[in-house]
């Protein structure tokens, strides 16, 4: 049994908006092992996005404990969390979130800039990452010159370029057609198989969840089900 990569214990997140008190997470306890592929499901307002933000070290928990590898996120400062994001976590968003009017390769190099990698290494690693998602030859296209699926692949290359341990995808196929969605899920499965990266995908689509090993469902800030399943393999598309 390997040590869990993520371990949440009685994790709370409470927002105070004036007089209103919103309990977005109410005592979540779960752990994710290194190399797992997890789907996080739930209706909007269920707390799944809040959980993602905490997991991605974008936000700070109110109380409880959230361990990411050897880090305790509850105690981490903003700079320490930025450091963890830089070294350990890659993000993929529903709306791609590439920097507009900036070439694909420069978008992919971005995490390396803040990790302090040399310019030469930035370029070679960014090229390598773009090749891994099938975008060799498109290095100098800007986001507007790429299709939605291609943009999302650039975003995946960016998420992976600094070799993180955790890949967090927030509705990665939400803006894509079925064919592109399948391509993206195929890339995820291949990456997981080849590099053993831990994958957490937030989605509300059942058929996307079927491509993953485990489905955690949130409702009203609590985990209501946590099921393991045999993932459906995406046929490698031509």
């Amino acid at each position: 049994m390997p040590a869990p990569l993520v371990e949440a214990r009685d994790l709370w997140k409470v927002y105070e908006l004036g007089d209103m008190r919103v309990e977005a997470l109410r005592g979540v306890t779960l752990s994710i092992d290194a190399g797992e592929a997890v789907a996080v499901m739930g209706a909007s307002g269920s707390g799944k996005s809040t959980f993602m933000n905490l997991l991605g070290c974008l936000d700070q928990p109110t109380r409880g404990s959230l361990r990411f590898a050897e880090h305790e996120i509850l105690e981490a400062s903003a700079d320490e969390r930025a450091e963890i994001r830089s070294r350990e976590i890659g993000f993929v968003f529903q709306s791609f979130n590439l920097i507009p009017r900036t070439s694909a390769i420069e978008n992919v190099e971005l995490p390396l800039v803040y990790a302090g990698v040399s310019a030469v290494e930035q370029e070679s690693r960014a090229r390598e990452a773009l090749r891994a998602v099938g975008l060799a030859g498109r290095e100098h296209h800007t986001p507007s010159q790429l299709s939605g699926g291609q943009q999302q692949r650039v975003a995946i290359a960016r998420a992976l370029v600094n070799r993180p341990r955790l890949l967090l995808a927030d509705e990665p196929t939400g803006n894509l057609d079925t064919r592109s969605s399948q391509e993206i899920m195929e890339i995820f499965q291949r990456l997981q198989r080849e590099s053993g990266i831990t994958l957490v995908v937030v989605t509300h689509e059942r058929d996307i969840a079927t491509y993953l090993d485990r489905v955690i469902t949130f409702r009203d800030g609590e985990v209501i089900s946590d099921l393991r399943q045999t993932a459906v393999r995406v046929e490698a598309s031509a």
Binding site: D79, S86, I99, L110, P111, R158, N162
Partner: peptide
């Protein structure tokens, strides 16, 4: 603003 958010997500600290 969004670009700033992206930069922060990929590891930029506030001082960057």
């Amino acid at each position: 603003t969004r670009e700033i958010g992206i930069r922060m997500a990929v590891g930029a600290k506030s001082r960057h």
